[in-house]
Simulated scan of single mutants.
Amino acid sequence: MSLERYGLLKAIGDDLRRQYTALSLLVWFLLSAVGLVFVTHHTRLLTMQQAALVNEQYRLDSEWRNLILEEKSLSDPDRIEALAKEKLMMQPLELQQEKVVKRSL
């Protein structure tokens, strides 16, 4: 054991430095743990939001395909001709009923 003498201020300073180091490590540890929890929570929220958006995309794609099919079936020329004959009582023109209009300049 050494007989070296320490001054009171030096002993207090050494104790504070050791305590400050341990305390600062504890604070940094707690801050990093809280940050990790926050980032994990935020990541899970974003993952759930992404899953909801993917489901919405699938639903909209399905609706789009159904609308395309509906448009094709409604714009079928045979269907339009049948509706014109049935509801509007229209008939195809005969050759003698046609009139050609020429535009003069």
Rank of each mutant, 00 (worst) to 15 (best):
Y20H: 11
Q49F: 01
R59Y: 09
D76N: 13
L9R: 02
L95P: 02
M48E: 14
H42P: 00
A11T: 05
H42G: 04
L26V: 01
L23A: 01
L105K: 15
S73M: 08
K10G: 01
T43I: 09
M89K: 14
Q57N: 12
E71H: 03
L60W: 00
Y20T: 07
L16K: 07
L30Y: 09
V34H: 00
V39Y: 00
G13Y: 07
Q97A: 07
M90E: 03
D61R: 01
A22M: 02
R18Q: 12
R103K: 15
Q97G: 00
V37L: 06
A84G: 07
R18H: 07
L53M: 14
S62E: 15
M90H: 03
K99R: 13
D78A: 15
R65H: 10
V37G: 05
K102Q: 13
L25Y: 08
G7N: 10
E4R: 07
W64N: 15
L45A: 08
L23V: 00
T47C: 02
L8N: 13
L46H: 10
T43E: 07
Y6T: 11
K72N: 10
L26N: 14
L30P: 00
A33Y: 04
L88I: 06
Q50R: 11
L67R: 06
T21F: 05
L74R: 06
E94I: 05
E86G: 02
L69R: 09
E63Y: 03
L83K: 12
I12C: 00
G13N: 13
R5P: 07
E4F: 06
Q49N: 05
D14H: 14
R17C: 07
D61F: 05
G35S: 02
F29S: 15
P92F: 02
Q49R: 02
D61K: 05
I68T: 05
Y6C: 09
V54S: 03
V101A: 03
A33W: 08
H41E: 05
V39D: 08
T40W: 11
L83M: 11
E81P: 07
L45D: 13
T47I: 15
M90Q: 02
Q19G: 03
G35F: 01
S32L: 08
S75L: 11
L46K: 04
A11S: 08
R18D: 07
Q49A: 12
V101P: 01
Q50N: 06
A33G: 00
Q97W: 04
M90A: 04
D76G: 01
